[in-house]
Amino acid sequence: MPENYEYVIVGGGMVADAAAKGIRERDKSGSIVILSEDVDAPYTRPALSKKLWTDPDFSPDDNDLKTTDATGAEVRLSTRVESIDRSNRSVTTSSGDTIGYGRLLLATGGRPKRLDLPDDSRIVYFRSASDYRRLRELAGKGHHVAVVGGGYIGSELAAALVQNDTRVTIVFPDRELGASTFPKSVDDRFEAAFRDHGVAFRPGRRLASGRADPSGIHLTLDDGSEIDADSVVIGLGIEPNIELAQRSGLSTDDGILVDVRLATDDPFVYAAGDVASYPDPILGRRRVEHVDNANEQGGAVGRIMAGSDEKYTHTPSYYSDVFDLSYEAVGKLDASLETVEDWKDDSSVVVYYLDGGVPVGVLLWNVWDSTDKARQVLAEAKALTPDNLVGMI
């Protein structure tokens, strides 16, 4: 006989935790099950490339979100959902279990982009807590780790590793680290921090191939040069896990398409987090892979599934910490766009990114408690000109 739950959540990340807590804000007793492919109960993902490397008093146990304790939700780990029967409102797992739902949330997240490299335990595609644990085993003791990717996750991993007795070489396609994201005045400071800490650079390069042998991992770059490392970590972003939604006939594009109430084109099925393409009230339809969106959208979809009449109207921010540099951002950061810089002092600046003269992104570099002001700028963008942006924040 199939099991039945009032709320079934597929995916066991931060969205699942926030959704279960959102459900409990309105429904104190409805049954909740979280079906997760992960081997760990929900945890905070940002700490995997930040705090767990830099704060000796913060442990993996501290990083556990304690979802079951807070909500009473049942969490089933190492559980893959293979199909959704929308007509009978049930899901089937890879082990053959059928589970009925009243409301279904797809919080399936994403998987790391992969390269044509050997299947070797010394090559880590970084995404999960188990990846963190594996990289910890490979790091330290002066070991040489090659980081492939110089974007958000790659740069954080390079900073984390080099601060933990690890020799680091980072490979990235830009002419400078961060050049595709930051204007040159900011990028110079960003790149200098890595050089000052001893990170070796291979700029303007992509990975062509790699091989593994008992002595280590040997990478060949697109110019024919080579890197010999003890291990490799790949940080090239993710691809959204939309295949389950596609197999069930739900509408997808870059992600699972949802409306302002985070519902798919099936009124009993919702999607949120990294996998959801939603209509942002300021920036238009988009898919966001950051923690602020996971928490806010997860909480909102939980309340909505439990009967709230709210809409998801939050425009999320995101942040990064590397060494003693920190920033927050809202919207699109693309160094190819026109930028307006508003320096507050030698180390703090607000950068406005403009597309066709209209602000589409705001970088808050060592400027704090200003994400709401950044959202306001983007909400009023069409009424602003480059000349009157300085001093807005």
Rank of each mutant, 00 (worst) to 15 (best):
S209T: 10
R205H: 14
N388C: 13
S87L: 13
P118A: 04
Q297E: 15
D188A: 11
Y125D: 06
R285L: 09
L77K: 14
V233L: 06
A179I: 05
L257C: 09
E338L: 13
T44E: 13
A129L: 15
E156I: 04
L221T: 04
V8Q: 00
L104D: 09
S87V: 13
S29Q: 14
D228N: 07
D120N: 14
L262P: 04
S248E: 07
A379G: 14
R80D: 11
F268G: 12
A263T: 10
T385V: 15
A159P: 06
S90D: 02
V162N: 00
R195L: 13
R287S: 10
G249H: 02
H197N: 14
D222L: 10
A208G: 05
T166I: 08
S59K: 06
Y312W: 12
A208N: 08
F201Q: 11
L384F: 10
E156K: 09
G30H: 13
P183C: 06
E25H: 13
D309Y: 05
A379N: 13
E289R: 07
K113S: 07
D17S: 15
V81Y: 04
A383R: 14
K332H: 10
S185M: 06
E328H: 11
R287M: 14
E6S: 08
T181Q: 07
T181W: 01
A16S: 15
L177H: 10
P386L: 11
L52T: 06
D55A: 03
G110M: 07
V350K: 00
E176N: 10
A19Y: 03
R303Y: 11
G224I: 09
R286L: 13
D27Q: 15
F58N: 03
R122M: 08
T181C: 05
D228Q: 07
E82I: 09
F172Q: 01
A160D: 03
T44L: 04
L244W: 02
D355W: 02
S128V: 11
G273D: 05
P56Q: 08
L333R: 01
S90H: 00
A179G: 11
G11W: 00
S87C: 07
D17H: 15
P214H: 04
L138P: 09
V362Y: 04
V269K: 01
D116Q: 12
